[in-house]
């Protein structure tokens, strides 16, 4: 409904600035904008990728570590997963606002917010991936004389990897969307196009931001999905 309304509004706007009948309202202004500002769009796309990459790297480091730790301390597993679940229910704009006292505004705040959102799929999938390994596999590994560290690195993590990869995929796609909101506090990225576009009632700008964010999400999802399938070789 809202979309229809904004499209109608856009059409009216386009009509008022270009009073001629049959004037194109979407493709031509949109492509004209792409051609005119491609350098800026490219920079913002790269910024967006940077935000996602940095946040994903940190979130994997923290999330997998936490997932591994709670797989050894069963009683704290569900409390920890619940905490990450609560983090995920906080509205993104509220999360970013709450992090300002800690990280100020800008890129770091954006990364911190994304990391907190990405924790749930990573922690939960690492934990589940390890717990779902057939007990006989772990028993035989231990019984043959592998140390706990060797069992973790040679058996548990490789076997949990497909499940962890599925978590990374969810986290990344989630991050691409929430990353757009982070532009509100100056973290950069394609979200800036949307916020600036709304302020200036510049529809080609909004479309560019929205479409590019969607494309990034879809492309990353496809790539990671392909990678995930490659891991299921056994």
């Amino acid at each position: 409904m809202e979309l229809l309304y904004s499209m109608g509004h856009y059409f009216m706007l386009a009509a008022s600035s270009n009073p001629q009948e049959g004037e194109p309202w979407f493709f031509e202004p949109f492509f004209a904008y792409l051609v005119r500002r491609w350098d800026r769009i490219l920079v913002m796309t790269l910024e967006h990728f940077e935000l996602i990459l940095v946040a994903t790297a940190i979130a994997i480091a923290i999330g997998v570590t936490v997932g591994v730790i709670i797989s050894y301390y069963e009683p704290i597993a569900y409390p920890v997963i619940n905490v990450t679940q609560v983090l995920m229910t906080i509205p993104s704009i509220a999360m970013i606002a709450m992090l300002i006292p800690l990280f100020g505004i800008g890129f770091n705040n954006g990364v911190a917010a994304l990391v907190l959102y990405m924790l749930l799929p990573l922690v939960r999938n690492t934990y589940t991936g390890i717990r779902e390994i057939e007990p006989a596999v772990l028993e035989s590994a231990k019984g043959m004389g592998m140390s706990e560290l060797r069992v973790l690195t040679k058996i548990k993590l490789p076997l949990a990897l497909p499940v962890i990869m599925a978590g990374i995929r969810v986290a990344v796609v989630l991050g691409v969307g929430i990353g757009a909101i982070a532009a509100y506090i100056g973290a950069g990225g394609l979200g800036s196009l949307i916020f600036n576009g709304i302020e200036r009632v510049n529809y080609p700008m909004i479309w560019t931001g929205a479409i590019f964010i969607s494309i990034i999400a879809i492309v990353l999802d496809l790539i990671l999905g392909w990678g995930e399938k490659r891991l299921y070789r056994y």
Binding site: A136, V137, S140, G143, M144, G145
Partner: peptide, 19 residues
């Protein structure tokens, strides 16, 4: 660890490493 490395161990479910 040293003890187990010197003792062969076979279980019913075998527990081969699938990866």
């Amino acid at each position: 660890i040293q003890l187990r490395l010197n003792i062969g161990y076979v279980i019913q479910e075998i527990g081969l490493f699938p990866h």
